[in-house]
């Protein structure tokens, strides 16, 4: 890691279950809240929140094996597609709807975000920042679709179908008239205090409508 990046590193963020975005999310969520995690994987974050914050934890996950593991952990997970799975929930059914590292994989990200803010009072969105300087350099110098630590896949096998930067997301929030309640930008386990769009590897936003 070049020196430049080190200079902009803010406070150290501990990890939760090996991930710093989980740590941030766990701190944003109030105890006993109703939480829906979209693309919840094997439910480790939800199980942690249920155990430690006493939340009412629900999840949606498409992968059959992960769903089984999540239910085996005791988390109420529904096997289904995020793109379709949200429609059945009534308005304001949850206090928080989480979308962690999955926005860039959804087919209709804007629709998903709108649905999140319909079924939840707040949406917490964590995504890898395509504006990170390494991505920019990789693209500039290689002349190929960038492959970095954050975006490790070849273009033909990447699950990512929409690439967005911190700036892109903020513009969308403005355009939709949503409110940013919290924005935490992370590089590794550190928060970034300025030049977010250049140095953030992962951004966590809490937004409301």
């Amino acid at each position: 890691m070049p020196l430049a990046a080190e200079l902009y590193r803010g406070p150290f963020v501990r990890q939760l279950l090996g991930r710093s975005d989980y740590r941030i999310i766990s701190e944003l969520i109030e105890p006993r809240a109703r939480v829906l995690d979209l693309g919840c994987g094997d439910g480790e974050l939800l199980a942690w929140l249920a155990e430690n914050k006493n939340v009412d934890a629900r999840g949606i996950e498409i992968d059959r094996t992960k769903v089984q593991r999540a239910i085996a952990r005791g988390v109420s997970v529904y096997q289904g597609d995020i793109d379709q799975g949200l429609t059945d929930y009534p308005d304001r059914a949850f206090d928080y709807v989480i979308l962690s590292q999955t926005l860039q994989e959804t087919r209709r990200p804007l629709w998903v975000l709108r649905e999140m803010l319909r079924v939840g009072r707040r949406a917490i969105v964590a995504f890898p920042n395509f504006g990170h300087w390494q991505v920019r350099l990789a693209h500039l110098f290689s002349g190929r679709a960038p492959k970095t630590k954050l975006f490790p896949h070849n273009w033909y096998e990447s699950p990512n179908v929409h690439f967005l930067t911190v700036k892109d997301f903020e513009e969308l929030v403005d355009q939709e008239g949503w409110k940013v309640e919290r924005r935490i930008c992370l590089a590794g386990s550190h928060t970034i205090s300025f030049l977010h769009n250049l140095f953030a590897e992962v951004a966590v936003f809490m937004i409301s409508s």
């Binding site: 059959r64 769903v67 096997q79 059945d88 929930y89 009534p90």
Partner: peptide
């Protein structure tokens, strides 16, 4: 799935998986 979706529509606590 119809049962599950109806339960989710009423915000009931429901887990569902289709085993292979």
């Amino acid at each position: 799935q119809e049962i599950v979706n109806a339960l989710r529509g009423r915000n009931k606590d429901v887990a569902y998986c289709e085993l292979s």
